[in-house]
């Protein structure tokens, strides 16, 4: 059934205001969208990162659902433990089956990098949970350091623009494909401007009989260097320029969810954020051409895969 805002907007948010996200942060928008999409009880686990610290400065919590933070790297294992405890206690009749959905919200550092082993292990074992990667393409909580999700050419504090280096020199890791290669029921990429697409994916994910994963682009005004009001516009531009394709791998079958009628030029994407500012210099033209090729090739590869 098509999700309509008029139908859901009267529900109380499961993430309360008063959290300390930066002005214009997309992470909390995404969390709101995800939790609004899920009917029924939810238990949330979050690794160390922006979302964790902004929502739980003791003695405050913004969570209106059961929530846990343990450490940076192993949220998939923690959530696996919770999900398993639920299965065990329900099986033994110690608690009643409440049809709980288990959700992780983790940054790209916690997912692409330090937590990759843990998520791989957990989804291979088939724990039924939804893992949402809030992908802001760098370690934002520690102050904008590069991760393997950082795109080539982007400035970060550990891929600085110097006299000989033009920001990050490697393309980002294709984590969504890596997760899909585990052959779990549902894998997708999404972005918050496309709220209906995102929320529909969440509903498919939690309905799946097994692990599910959604990689959500999470624009960050501080780290990407743009004005806070542009967060959703930047998200839209990522999809329009095919830098962040919206697609899903539903039980192995790959489907594009959004195909721009005409692909926005990459240069518009690069111009929109200060982290790419140096790429506009004439001497970096060859790199921009290289990035343009990379995006075109990746897009073509995905389109072919989705045929």
């Amino acid at each position: 059934m098509t999700i309509k805002l008029k139908d859901i907007c009267n529900q109380q948010d499961r993430l309360a205001p008063g959290h300390r996200a930066c002005t214009g942060c997309s992470e909390t928008t995404i969390v709101r969208q995800v939790l609004q999409a899920i009917n029924g009880p939810v238990v949330v686990a979050t690794p160390t990162g922006c979302l964790e610290i902004i929502t739980s400065p003791y003695p405050f919590t913004s969570w209106r659902v059961p929530w846990i933070h343990v450490a940076f790297e192993s949220v998939a294992s923690v959530l696996a433990g919770i999900e398993t405890a639920n299965r065990s206690l329900v099986k033994q009749g110690k608690i009643k089956d409440q049809d709980i959905h288990f959700v992780a919200f983790a940054g790209d550092g916690a997912t692409y990098d330090i937590g990759l082993q843990f998520i791989s292990g957990a989804i291979e074992r088939g724990h039924k949970f939804l893992y949402i990667c809030l992908n802001n393409e760098a370690y934002m909580n520690t102050g904008i350091q590069r991760s393997s999700a950082t795109p080539q050419g982007a400035w970060t504090t550990t891929s600085p623009v110097g006299k000989v280096l033009p920001g990050k020199t490697q393309p980002r890791k294709d984590l969504t494909a890596i997760i899909a290669a585990h052959n779990i029921p549902y894998v997708a990429q999404a972005a918050p401007h496309a709220w209906r697409d995102l929320m529909t994916k969440v509903q498919k994910a939690v309905a799946a009989d097994g692990p599910s994963f959604i990689n959500v682009l999470s624009p960050c005004p501080r780290g990407w260097r743009y004005e806070p009001n542009e967060t959703i516009a930047i998200s839209r531009l990522a999809a329009d320029s095919c830098v962040w394709p919206l697609y899903e791998v539903d039980h192995g079958s790959c489907r594009l969810n959004y195909k721009p009628s005409q692909r926005s030029p990459l240069i518009d994407w690069l111009k929109s954020q200060g982290r790419f500012g140096h790429l506009l210099r004439p001497e970096n033209k060859p790199l921009v051409d290289e990035l343009e090729n990379w995006v075109a090739n990746e897009w073509a590869r995905l389109v072919k895969r989705c045929q």
């Binding site: 805002l5 959290h19 928008t29």
Partner: peptide, 10 residues
């Protein structure tokens, strides 16, 4: 309700 769905702070 676009403002509602996009608001980071609810």
């Amino acid at each position: 309700m676009f403002c509602w769905i996009y608001c980071p702070d609810g």
